[in-house]
Nucleic acid binder design. Structure first.
Lengths: 235, 235
DNA sequence: CATAATTTGTACGTATGTATG
DNA sequence: TCATACATACGTACAAATTAT
């Protein structure tokens, strides 16, 4: 791991374990250079990484200050999978029900979406996420089979992103994300405990490899009252 | 303006006017150094700025590639006000109806939220956003009066962020943002054209100055079917 | 298949500017 | 006025990934 990330992680650990509480000032760049025996540029890269993750704010002439932690717990800055997000939320019982995992031919619509030929093999997975006993999220994933081979129900019951990064050893680069409300479909009503709500929140996710290949299109359909999304924006 | 931002803006302009279309490779760092007569570090900072704004992706050994433009149009990365966002959306007729603009004493709830004493002066503004003739968004703003003095209905009918940055000459640093669904309130039903929908999407925004002062708490209540949020996330 | 050239990534050093107290 | 702290800019060197030779 690069040196600047090591420094960044050590500082993040101090923030999370409370040894650097909210509103306190981080050591100055000069002090950090001495502590970690590194150059100013490297220390600054480490701090910038904390900035992007929403751990700190910087102010010229004054210093770098720790932000309050509550925002970080629920934070979706960056690409975070369902498994990763709910590990952090703790205290909730989370199960996954894999409804189906099959290989289909790309329809016109899917072919255009992924910029592949009609009929190209697509792996489709449908899963319901059960939180504290309630069926509240329906995930419908589409993967270009050639780009994500070997997907099975067993893999789908765990974290597909871990499978892609660890087993397939591919790097995920970026995702286009859209959040909107849609009327509930028949499938939503069949699979989820909607409790009379008429709409669902749909998070559409298009994910790309480092090389720019579009490998995933996912709809994550949430029951209205169980949905929440937070982040930190910077001017 | 710093040199790296000048370079970044010139490159962004080339992407937006189509002279650098999607998937094309940017000039290499060496070439950009020559073109802009600057150092490698400066050119790299310029490219990193484009990266954060979702204009390009980088790949070691290959180059920097332009991302497709459609994602950028609807992009809400960063802190964007209603006025700023809808300027970019074009072709929609947008009006603002200022319902009220008054100064109140902070309740227990507001006092705790802003970390001020109970009774501190708060400026409260309620506005309805009318898009193509339909009343679809109810904005309820709370500002700490001391931190944002001089707010009037006239100011509220334009862009408050422009007023803060240009007239008050204060720098906005970051915002904590939350998106969730809530049952529609009586006020929602009175002020918005809900067309029978039972819930609204609520975007809660807490905004901070550069010095860390929490000056704004806003609820933006959207009709379900007129709400959409997009961004680009990076791993 | 091996090597070299190209391109981005990391790290160090130095100098000067700007904001704060 | 001065010291401190972050911001910008230039330069150098080597590493790692990719592509061309």
């Amino acid at each position: 791991m690069p040196k600047y990330l090591q420094i960044s992680q050590q500082l993040a650990a101090r923030i999370q374990d409370g040894s650097l509480p909210a509103e306190t000032k981080l050591p100055s760049e000069t002090e950090l250079m001495a502590e970690f025996s590194s150059s100013r540029g490297t220390v600054r890269k480490a701090i910038d990484a904390l900035l992007e993750k929403g751990f700190v704010r910087k102010q010229q002439g004054k210093g770098v200050f720790v932000l309050s932690q509550d925002a970080i717990e629920f934070q979706f800055n960056g690409i975070v999978s369902f498994s990763e997000a709910h590990q952090k939320m703790g205290q909730h019982e989370v199960e996954t029900d894999v409804l189906s995992c099959d290989v289909i031919d790309a329809t016109d619509e899917l072919a255009q979406l992924f910029s592949v030929k009609k009929g190209t093999s697509i792996t489709r997975i449908k899963r319901v996420r059960i939180i504290d006993g309630e069926r509240v999220i329906l995930d419908i994933n589409h993967f270009v089979t050639e780009l994500v081979p070997g997907l099975t129900s067993a893999v789908a019951s765990g974290s597909i992103y871990t499978y892609i990064e660890q087993t397939l050893n591919r790097q995920i680069s970026y995702a286009k994300r859209k959040i909107e409300a849609q009327p509930a479909t028949a499938e939503d009503r069949a699979q989820l405990d909607l409790e009379g709500t008429t709409h669902v929140i749909v998070i559409t996710n298009d994910t790309y490899y480092y090389e720019g290949q579009h490998f995933e299109h996912t709809e994550s359909r949430h029951r209205l009252d169980k949905f929440q999304f937070t982040d930190i924006a910077r001017r």
